[in-house]
Amino acid sequence: MSGAKHISIQGVHKVFQSGGQEVYALKAIDLEVARGEFVCLLGPSGCGKSTLLNAVAGFSLPSSGTITVEGVPITEPGPDRGMVFQEYALFPWMTVEQNIAFGLQIKQVAKAVIQAKVDELLVLLNLQDFRRRYPKDLSGGMRQRVAIARVLAIDSPIMLMDEPFGALDALTRRNLQDELLRLWTELKKTILFVTHSIEEALYLADRTVVMTYRPGTIKRDLSIDLPRPRDVASPAFNALKKELSQLLMEEQHRHQQDEFKGAAVD
């Protein structure tokens, strides 16, 4: 996939104060994502991949550096960058239908248009039979479908996904990964997807960006040129898996050392 650059991250630092010390969650991040590209941010916990995603979403702006979308710097969250959270974050007081419609309601779109859009998305995500259910009555996989539909409803060109399938069982997870790929091909979104699963990154992404553990920097930016649908048992897939495992293990090791140091200090 190639195209004009859609998201541009330049020289981004994010500094947190922790116990009087400055901790670099992100350090000198440069990353460009092309229109329609599917990019995975991969790394151990604490590597700043979610911090980076939140910066692009506009929830927590970088300490320095710039993030632009179509050349316009990000200053706040907005519906042009729809976000899907790991914990689904559906509004429990709204039915499936109402959750999906909410973003359009905010934009004061005409009722008939909203209804048509909601109907279309219910079909697209196989949720027709659940339209009047409340989130508490849905399985994790179903909830995440609703969360994806809610973002698709506002038609944002960019989808930000923060470990969206992390809490799901393996089968549901593969199922939703396939659906996401189908939707992405159909709707041509730019996707920035955070995960700590190597296999997930290799299965989904055009490009996988491996991040380092504290300070969060980019360790490797790897194009995945395998044809889709990808065969997780193929030698090529496993060669890449091995390569990424190696990279991640190094970071995981540093993470553990850090925790031991922390334990010794405590």
């Binding site: 929830f59 969250p77 907005g78 519906p79 729809g82 914990e87 509004f91 809610r150």
Partner: peptide
């Protein structure tokens, strides 16, 4: 706060956040 983050992400104004998120969540 995640509900408020969703609200901001979807572009809800402060008033909409109050009437459609905070109020029902507090009921």
């Amino acid at each position: 706060s995640i509900y408020l983050r969703v609200g901001r992400n979807l572009g809800a104004s402060r008033l909409t956040q109050f009437t459609h998120i905070i109020l029902p969540a507090a009921t």
